[in-house]
Amino acid sequence: MIQRAIFICMVMILLGTFVHGQQSLVLSIKPMMGKEELILGKAYIDARGDTMNIETLRFYLSNFMFYSKGKSVWQEKNSYHLVEGDDSAKRSIALRIPPKIKYDAMGFTWGVDSTANVSGAMGGDLDPTKGMYWTWQNGYINTKIEGTCSSSTVAKGSFQMHLGGYAYPFRADQHLLFSLGEGNTLQIKIQLEQFFEQIDWVKQNRIMSPSNDAVQLSEALSKTIQVKQ
């Protein structure tokens, strides 16, 4: 009898996870060059007349958190998402928010928080085989942008930006908060062109470790982010 009860319970639990469907919020991440969505490997002329060609764009979005009237109401567990510029499947994030949760704002981190940076080996999108972990020192690279630019003076006009750093005074992760209405899709737009306009290509074409430049550019990049419903 007890066994039967246990068995039934287990089946119910299993079914429960399917039947009690969850509201999901789908975020599509759109890196933009002007009005167009970025295509890797394509040449763009930016507002300053530089020819830009972006070959790599990869970054982490993490710790999605939802608020209602200023109070936190839901937080994604193990919330680390590596967004890949060349993989449309990796430009979209589905969050499984329980249906009863009502929210009016969403917060997230651009980059990887310091806890994840000091906790040893991690799996999933944080697995070091993803190529987003510095190996000669500690820490995740929050943002990788690589390509060529006509006014980048060093190394045949190529640039490499590996922005990261989890410890004071070079902490590069950025915390962002946006107010939201209802709906189950969202666009997160990153206005890369605005970001590139702020770069001093002569000095800032190779950033490979935590530094003032890395912090400053991470801030600049996060300020170009818009959320649209």
Partner: peptide, 16 residues
């Protein structure tokens, strides 16, 4: 003290 966790130590020699 470049490495903050034993798990991450092995990455260094493998990739150096």
């Amino acid at each position: 003290g470049a490495i903050n966790h034993l798990d991450m130590q092995s990455l260094f020699p493998i990739t150096h």
